[in-house]
Design a protein around this nucleic acid. Structure first.
Lengths: 143, 143
DNA sequence: TCCTGGTTGCGAAGAGTTCGCAGAAGCAAG
DNA sequence: CTTGCTTCTGCGAACTCTTCGCAACCAGGA
């Protein structure tokens, strides 16, 4: 279980953005906090929430995740085909390396792509979202 | 329409890999060639093919794309939620920048990520597929 | 040309996600 | 605290994209 302080902070941010704070949204944020830096699917989040609150619907989790993404509190990492979309809090910027073999998602330090991002900006006018870079390959275990 | 020579070359590569060359596979490869460097969905490809060959089924296009991906002739770029998975030939290595705003896929030169890829290998033991890096952000037009 | 196993078309199933609606709940004002 | 407007939620159905099973078919080797 994550500390209550963190949840309150997220809730306050949501309110400050002019969004309503509802029970369902609090629960989704709480579940995302509990997930730590793991990448969880909407269904997984709903499962966790429904252990204590069976009346929270999967649709609501999807809608809440959409909202949280639109205000920048959450990002979605669209993995390859078959796998469901996963979400996690934008607590600190980092990047994803997804292993083709085992599907593992490896978090990479935020600075890894800085040079590339700057170059893209300069040469292509493309503003990369610094917290959302995904690359695929093979992790050390699967090679 | 792409040159016939290119198609023959792809067909030969497929045969050399021990895979059967069927009409449907030839058509899928042809459609991928015609698409050039655009990223096309299975449905788009099926549509193009079915203009001349209405009897080619969407299932077959999916199965063929899976095959082509498994032998390394095609890569799939799983864009965000909602959008269908897109595919394109691995004609030359390059990377993708996907715009959040308009969904445009920008091809980036192969070398852009070389330094990062090498560093990932060294520091994380992660072997990135050099032909499949995706990053999201905002293109020049959408900013 | 004949055989054999991989491939295809077809239809249906499956997973993940979205939508519409009526009732419930958040939040601001009184 | 109560009221009232607006947004949110639960529910269920619909939708899209993708996969599967099966019988007929065909590519490639003998």
């Amino acid at each position: 279980m994550a500390g209550a302080g963190e949840l309150d902070e997220l809730v306050d941010r949501l309110r400050a953005l002019g969004e309503r704070v509802t029970t369902a949204r609090r629960l989704v944020l709480g579940a995302l906090l509990d997930a730590g830096h793991d990448h969880t699917s909407a269904e997984q989040l709903a499962g966790v929430i429904q252990r204590d609150h069976p009346d929270v619907n999967l649709s609501t989790v999807y809608r809440t995740l959409d909202l949280l993404e639109s205000v920048g509190l959450v990002i979605r990492a669209g993995l390859g085909t078959g796998a469901a979309t996963t979400y996690h809090l934008v607590d600190r910027p980092h990047h994803h390396a997804v292993c083709d073999g085992c599907g593992a998602v490896i978090d990479l330090p935020a600075g890894a792509f800085d040079a590339v991002v700057r170059r893209l900006e300069r040469e292509h006018g493309f503003a990369a979202r610094p917290s959302h870079l995904t690359l695929t390959g093979r992790c050390a275990d699967c090679r």
